[in-house]
Amino acid sequence: MERRDEILGTIQHEPGITFRGLARRLGLGIGDLQYHLRKLERDGEVFSRRVGRRRYLFPKGLEDEAQRLLIAISTDTRRRILLRLIEGPADQKTLSEYLGVSQPTVSYHMGELVKLGIIEAERRGKSVVYRLSYDPGLVVRMIRDYRPGLLERLADGLIDLLAGVGGGDD
């Protein structure tokens, strides 16, 4: 029961954690984690949602909109895409350059975000322009509240950049 409480506590603290991420975080074997999750799901304490090849875990009572956003911000690339789209609409080429990844990689992630209903895609001639379909404030709050490591890394990067700019005046 202690192990199950640890699993439940981790899911409540990190809603949207993936099955494999939870196994790594807690140092559990796959079979052991599956056993405890089956019990927690049967008792109605947690539920899972499969998207593609990943299984995301949520505590009971989390509404659908929050689930979709948590899935969307579960990867660094998608979080960065959403943060960029908060600034305004962008096409695939702009996002590719901003992220420093290939256009097919951007296309894959955009397809996943469109399926989740987080962004909208509008064809303009040969290009596709993407925009958030969620309130930008809600996206920022979800990232801040559930994936704080990203904002800390962004803040650290800004501090390093500013320190580098002002560092030569000593």
Rank of each mutant, 00 (worst) to 15 (best):
Q103G: 02
D91K: 04
G31W: 02
R54G: 00
P136K: 11
Q67D: 01
F47K: 12
L26E: 10
R153F: 01
S102Q: 12
D43G: 03
E97L: 13
R53T: 11
L26C: 05
V101W: 04
G9N: 09
A155Q: 05
R144N: 08
R25S: 15
T18W: 11
P59K: 10
K115D: 14
E6M: 15
S102W: 04
L85T: 07
F19E: 14
P104A: 01
D170L: 09
L82F: 12
V106P: 05
I86C: 08
L33S: 06
S48A: 15
V51W: 11
G111Q: 02
I73G: 00
I17D: 07
Y130S: 02
G111E: 00
D91Y: 05
L154H: 06
T77Q: 04
D32V: 11
Q92H: 03
D64C: 00
L40V: 07
D135K: 09
Q103V: 14
E152K: 10
S96E: 07
P136Y: 12
M1T: 13
M142S: 09
V165E: 10
V165M: 06
P15G: 06
D160T: 12
L26H: 10
G149Q: 13
R144K: 14
T10M: 15
R55M: 08
A163S: 13
L138F: 13
L150R: 05
V101L: 05
L33K: 07
I71K: 09
Y108E: 10
R4P: 00
R54I: 10
R141F: 02
E63N: 15
P15I: 05
G117S: 04
L57G: 07
E87W: 10
L37D: 03
L37V: 05
A155D: 01
Y146N: 10
K93T: 14
E87V: 07
L85P: 03
G149R: 09
D5C: 04
E65R: 14
A90G: 04
D145V: 05
D32R: 12
Y35C: 03
G21R: 07
L138H: 06
V114I: 10
R84N: 06
M142E: 07
L62R: 02
G52V: 10
V128E: 08
L162E: 06
P15T: 02
G137M: 09
I143W: 08
R79W: 04
D170E: 09
E97F: 11
D156S: 13
G27D: 05
L40W: 08
G29L: 01
A66I: 06
